[in-house]
Design a binder for these strands. Structure first.
Lengths: 243, 243
DNA sequence: TAGATTGTTAATCGATTAACAATC
DNA sequence: TAGATTGTTAATCGATTAACAATC
């Protein structure tokens, strides 16, 4: 019972296409990553039960999420790993590359530059910018330090941000500066025409409507963990012990 | 109309205490941070409208969230900044320090070690562990590199993880290793007794029930941005232009 | 008292879940 | 056909919102 190309892809039916729920969009990248790792180990077909387990979600949720993209599974069989993976990439907009500029090249910025998942998912770092004289002019290697001819990139001065944006036309800006500098950088990114910002600085950015900011906040994550850790220490009156 | 200590803190009334919604817990650290910055600039009282604007949420949501902690505002006046800040910290479990071990001291691990928000929120880094001979034995400065006598810490070999956990009793483990190593590290952290894990590696960790894993995933955030950026490019038929 | 602002309610909205008919 | 597994439905749950009575 193999899945032929002809059989696959019943294509979006109902209202599909527009209006994929936010919660679903947030999970698609995880499904995509797991599917790629399945493909890498030679798996060609996978059931929702199996895929869901690998992704850490319930089978029902997985199927509901996937049904937003279209009817790409085969009843009684499962999903074609490569095909489904491609559909998710298409839906997420990963068919064409996205250009990214990173502002702030401290330890965090360097961690981002060396992160392999960047290029492998079609994100191209087109610029690095920093305010600190010590790092301006420094050359960094994009991706892992394999030094096998991969790209390298020079750190430009913060003052050249607007020019860089104009010349390289990034669609996404990453802010990896100290908190104090973040709002100013955001203003300049927006002023230069960017509409998508990923913010690692621990501040609430204020941006005009139409600009999307996503925030990654270490301190917030730690505090949420602390909250639950605390609760775990308080409440464990196992049902059995209650009067 | 100042807020006297006597007037403040109607204390939890209804079902409060247990069962603060997850969505609320996730926002409390943001409220806390903004309140601290307000306090730092001398503000003593703030209304829900004003605080909500600074936090990037609606006033209704803010008041609903705060009402989970108790009735700590004053009608017609607002909230006492210092008092509310303290209540949030208490609720989040930040009154006592939490000990953290960081596994993986690449660029990302170093970024975490140098992050000031760690110590300032009561998180104490009690151990750094890595598998790479080049970094084992290295000395890192915790917090900003002010070199004014703050703590420094040596990187221990990965093999010493269990012993470190036993001796220093961290409650929280941070995984900042490459993807390949993450599951193995998680298993060992759980085996050593940790129940709270913050995972920066791009893998879905599998852990026993009772262990909480939070995941910070750069690639996921970027892909969500790409999705919306793509949609923005497709859909902008301003209502006015539709037939 | 009059003005301001909270705390709470009830309505709405979106996300999750379980179950099962459709169908390979 | 019989077994397996999807896609979809309907029920439940949790989160958001707007409005306003309570009250400083």
């Amino acid at each position: 019972m193999s899945l032929s190309r002809r059989t696959l892809g019943k294509a979006p039916t109902h209202d599909v296409g527009r209006g994929i729920p936010d919660a679903t969009v947030a999970r698609l990248p995880v499904y995509g990553r797991v599917l790629r790792s399945l493909a890498a180990q030679g798996t060609t077909t996978v059931s929702s039960d199996c895929l869901a387990a690998s992704c850490g979600v319930s089978p029902a949720k997985l199927r509901k999420d996937l049904s937003c993209l279209g009817s790409y599974g085969t009843r009684g069989v499962g999903y074609d790993v490569a095909f489904l993976s491609a559909q998710i990439d298409r839906e997420l907009g990963l068919s064409k590359p996205w250009r990214v500029v990173i502002v702030g090249v401290g330890n965090l910025g360097r961690a981002l530059v060396s992160y392999r998942g960047f290029a492998s998912r079609g994100f191209e770092i087109v610029g690095l910018v920093d305010a600190h004289p010590d790092v301006i002019g420094t050359k960094l290697t994009i991706g892992e330090e394999l030094a096998n001819g991969e790209g390298t990139i020079y750190v430009l001065p913060l003052t050249g941000l607007e020019r860089l944006v104009e010349e390289s036309q990034p669609q996404i800006g990453v802010i990896a500066t100290p908190a104090e500098a973040a709002q100013g950088v955001a203003d300049r990114l927006v002023g230069a025409g960017l509409r998508s910002i990923l913010n690692f600085a621990p501040v609430v950015l204020s941006v005009p409507a139409g600009v999307e900011v996503r925030k990654v906040d270490l301190a917030v994550e730690l505090q949420i963990l602390a909250f639950h850790e605390q609760r775990r220490g308080e409440e464990p009156l196992p049902e059995a012990m209650r009067a």
